[in-house]
């Protein structure tokens, strides 16, 4: 039998530190959590509180100076038709982009989660992530060229004598424009393209967690593919769909660059905030605009929770 000691000597400071953490697990937790909590609590929540506070101030219409008194006047201004239009347009766009992203992302995410193996899985991740590596502005300007009247889509339509489809789409009320790049339809297409990866990845992660035997059990009990999709796959993947939709929805709500470059220059919430805090110098109204997406997301999450979207978590 060997005669090595029952307690090994500490080899150095790392061993002693590990021993300290073993005796006081909370010390490690505190060390790990302090920096992010400082960042989140002070910097992030602090500025959010400042934003909220600003939205309850108002601006003196004559002097243009911010009056630091509590008032709901600024929020009332949001309901003026010109401002309310901006809110409505932004929310509708965000909802449409989210639905389109979900519909496009599902087959891709489903394939990646259920069938892709090895190299194909690597190709999937690369394919989804690659667009995220290049500059957002480059992509948006590239789309401006793609969607322009003389762009590749217009050219292809002309060659195949299908220009009437684009013309038809551009004559739908609300989508008018001289070309796709100056139509709200173009804004929508670019939004969908830019935010799609943020829908695919959480969806794929949640589909990956649905075991195969669950789908087999459903078929075994007599369910058709459609029934299995509605009653098993969708409810189990819903947390991922909701997570993805939070990204696409809130990113669209806050974006101010895409609608500036592509579309008919109609105002969106992000653009309004940008203009109000800059040229107009109306910080209270800009803050009130900025609070709207936060409220919408809170309401959206409350509804999703009510509908049981997080039951399968």
């Amino acid at each position: 039998m060997s005669s090595s000691p029952a307690i090994l000597p500490a080899k150095g400071p790392a061993d002693r530190l590990t021993a300290l953490f073993w005796r006081h697990p909370r010390v490690l937790l505190a060390i790990l959590l302090t920096p992010p909590l400082l960042w989140l609590g002070v910097v992030y929540l602090g500025s959010l509180a400042a934003l909220l506070l600003q939205s309850f101030y108002s601006i003196d219409e004559f002097s243009g100076v911010v009056k630091e008194e509590f008032t709901l006047k600024t929020y009332a201004e949001l309901l003026r038709p010109s401002n309310f239009d901006i809110l409505l347009r932004t929310v509708l766009m965000a909802a449409a982009v989210t639905l389109a992203c979900a519909a496009l992302a599902f087959p891709i995410a489903y394939y990646a989660a259920r069938y892709a193996k090895g190299h194909w899985k690597a190709a999937f991740y690369l394919g989804v992530m690659l667009p995220l590596w290049s500059s957002y502005l480059v992509k948006v300007y590239a789309w401006k060229l793609i969607l322009a009247k003389e762009g590749i889509i217009g050219w292809a339509a002309e060659q195949t004598h299908t220009s009437w489809i684009i013309d038809g789409l551009l004559s739908i009320p609300g989508m008018e424009g001289s070309s796709l790049s100056t139509s709200p339809l173009g804004t929508f297409m670019v939004f969908v393209y830019i935010w799609l990866p943020y829908m695919i990845l959480p969806m794929q992660a949640s589909l990956e967690r649905v075991p195969n035997s669950m789908l087999e059990a459903s078929a075994d009990l007599g369910a058709s593919r459609g029934q299995t999709f509605r009653t098993v796959i969708l409810p189990l993947a819903l947390p991922g769909v909701i997570a993805g939709s939070i990204f696409t929805f809130s990113l669209t709500l806050g974006d101010y660059i895409i609608p500036q470059i592509i579309g008919n220059s109609a105002n969106f919430i992000g653009m309004a905030v940008y203009q109000l805090q800059g040229t107009a110098g109306n910080i209270p109204l800009a803050a009130a605009f900025a609070v709207v997406p936060i409220l919408i997301m809170l309401i959206y999450l409350a509804i999703a929770r009510r509908m049981g979207a997080f039951d399968a978590l």
């Binding site: 075991p211 035997s213 669950m214 087999e216 059990a217 459903s218 078929a219 075994d220 009990l221 007599g222 369910a223 058709s224 009653t231 098993v232 409810p235 189990l236 049981g308 039951d311 399968a312």
Partner: peptide
């Protein structure tokens, strides 16, 4: 499988986690 009049008890049971026991049993 869904048109075969046979049913399986799976090794991992494969119960649907988002349904209660009654709805699991009533699924078929």
């Amino acid at each position: 499988p869904h048109l075969r009049n046979v049913n399986t008890v799976f090794q991992d049971y494969a119960l649907f986690p988002h349904m209660n026991v009654r709805d699991n049993v009533a699924y078929g």
